[in-house]
Design a protein around this nucleic acid. Structure first.
Lengths: 196, 196
DNA sequence: TCAACATACGGAGCGCTGTTCCGCTTGTCA
DNA sequence: TGACAAGCGGAACAGCGCTCCGTATGTTGA
């Protein structure tokens, strides 16, 4: 070992390469929501307006792309929490909007297990990362709404997220099942006034 | 509706058809253990010595075959419990042999989730069937060994099966990981004398 | 016992997938 | 601005699940 503490300098990427990687991440997220995570790689390439070679340069295997989108969405979801708390009219409204982002994200999460069929340990690690990152964000939204007196206080963030996750199971299979609507109802049900 | 109570007579199958179905079930089980559940349909057909058409006549989709093998193995595993209790020298030996069957079976079970990616409800139903059928069998083996004073009594059947299931996670991925050996150790550890 | 016929079989072939490969394009920097 | 590494597009490849249809065989009534 000859480098001590000094990371091997990552040679800065070309501008178009960085742009394409970002475009792919966004295109994949959109396609996953529209067609499910098992959507063909070609469809994602088309959505992003790039060729097959480009996709495989950035993500050597299909699963790498799924994982990258997953991480990207976890980060976006985590960052959206505080932002919504500032921009939304009330903490409860912020919670509602955040949960909607979370539901979109779950499409990718539910497909992740399939994409990582051969790597249970890796999946568990990613799931842990997801919990570490998102539960505190959800909790802060919940706390803010509680502090404003808007909602009941007997539901934990982990509990709520678990419930939402379960409501979304099978949402991609049955087109008559509107998970988003049910999740909205669940969040609405948290309101103090809803109890009467 | 014109039949009341009378099931539409299932027209008896031809002898070779029944034979092939059975051969397919056994071949698939063998191939799943050897190459994993994601083994190509062609490999199973070859193992059974039949053509592709035959396999798809009996099991219209790949997943149907996986499910059929799964049910078949649950039944075989359930039936093996009492049989082993009679034939093995001691209840603890019977337990050890039964657990070995159970581990082989888990290969199929772990692949089932992948095969049924689009049917969470169906998977849950099958998992329930698996618990209903196998937990009592494992419990009776455990009880017999406990009654003979061979083992500790503070581990439930569900607990033990859960632990074994977890030990087998990822066993197909890492060739250096010998799940079977670890499971043997776990069962050996149940022995009363093992505690000292 | 022996046609005659429905049933079941085998395997080439289809359409789709993930992935590779390579000639061409483009951003970067002296 | 020119030279060249870095990056791109998409045709081509291998392997998959599944279908189709000509052929073979178990079954059944005479």
């Amino acid at each position: 070992m000859e480098d001590t503490g000094e990371q091997a300098a990552p040679p800065r990427k070309r501008a178009d390469a960085r742009r394409n990687e970002q475009a792919l991440l966004e295109a994949a997220a959109a396609v996953f929501v529209r067609s499910g995570v098992q959507a063909p790689v070609r469809e994602i390439a088309a959505e992003a307006g790039v060729g097959m070679g480009t996709i495989y340069r950035h993500f050597p295997q299909r699963a790498d792309l799924v994982i990258a989108v997953y991480r990207h969405q976890v980060e976006a979801c985590a960052a959206a929490g505080p932002a919504l708390l500032e921009s939304a009219p009330t903490p409860h409204a912020a919670l509602g909007r955040w949960v909607r982002l979370f539901v979109e994200f779950l499409v990718t999460k539910h497909g992740l297990a399939g994409a990582m069929r051969d790597d249970d340990a890796g999946f568990a690690a990613l799931h842990g990362y997801f919990l570490d990152r998102l539960v505190p964000v959800c909790a802060s939204l919940l706390d803010a709404a509680a502090a404003a007196g808007e909602i009941e206080t007997d539901v934990s963030a982990l509990n709520l997220m678990h419930g939402i996750g379960n409501l979304c199971i099978g949402a991609d299979k049955d087109p008559g099942y509107d998970a988003g609507r049910l999740v909205d109802l669940l969040v609405a049900g948290l309101r103090r006034s809803a109890v009467g």
